[in-house]
Measured scan of single mutants.
Amino acid sequence: NQASVVANQLIPINTALTLVMMRSEVVTPVGIPADDIPRLVSMQVNRAVPLGTTLMPDMVKGYP
Rank of each mutant, 00 (worst) to 15 (best):
V27Y: 02
V6D: 00
G31E: 01
M21K: 03
V27D: 02
Q44F: 12
T28H: 13
A7D: 02
S42K: 12
M21N: 10
M21H: 11
T53A: 13
I11F: 02
D58N: 08
A48R: 12
M21G: 03
A3N: 12
P12K: 08
A34Q: 05
S24I: 11
G31H: 01
P50N: 10
L51S: 12
R39Q: 14
V5S: 03
I13Y: 10
L17N: 00
P29A: 04
R47P: 02
P64C: 05
A7Q: 01
L40M: 07
V45H: 01
N46I: 15
N8Q: 10
R23P: 03
M59G: 03
I11T: 01
P64S: 13
V30R: 15
K61H: 11
T28Q: 12
I37P: 01
S42G: 15
A34I: 07
T15A: 13
V30F: 07
S24V: 15
S24H: 09
L40N: 00
V6Y: 02
Q9L: 08
G31P: 00
R23I: 07
P29W: 03
M43D: 03
T54D: 02
D58P: 07
L55F: 10
T53Y: 09
T18W: 03
A48Q: 15
A48G: 09
P64W: 06
T18D: 07
D35P: 11
L19T: 11
V5G: 01
G52P: 00
T15Y: 08
P29K: 04
R47D: 06
N14W: 14
I13M: 12
V26M: 10
M21Q: 05
V26D: 06
V26H: 11
N8S: 12
V41Y: 05
A3L: 11
V20A: 11
V5R: 00
R23E: 04
V27H: 03
S4D: 00
A48K: 15
Q9A: 12
V60D: 01
V30W: 10
K61G: 09
K61I: 15
I32M: 04
R39M: 11
A34G: 14
L55M: 09
K61A: 13
L40R: 00
L55G: 00
M21A: 04
P33H: 10
K61D: 14
A3W: 11
M59A: 07
P57Q: 08
T28A: 13
D36W: 11
P64K: 04
T28S: 15
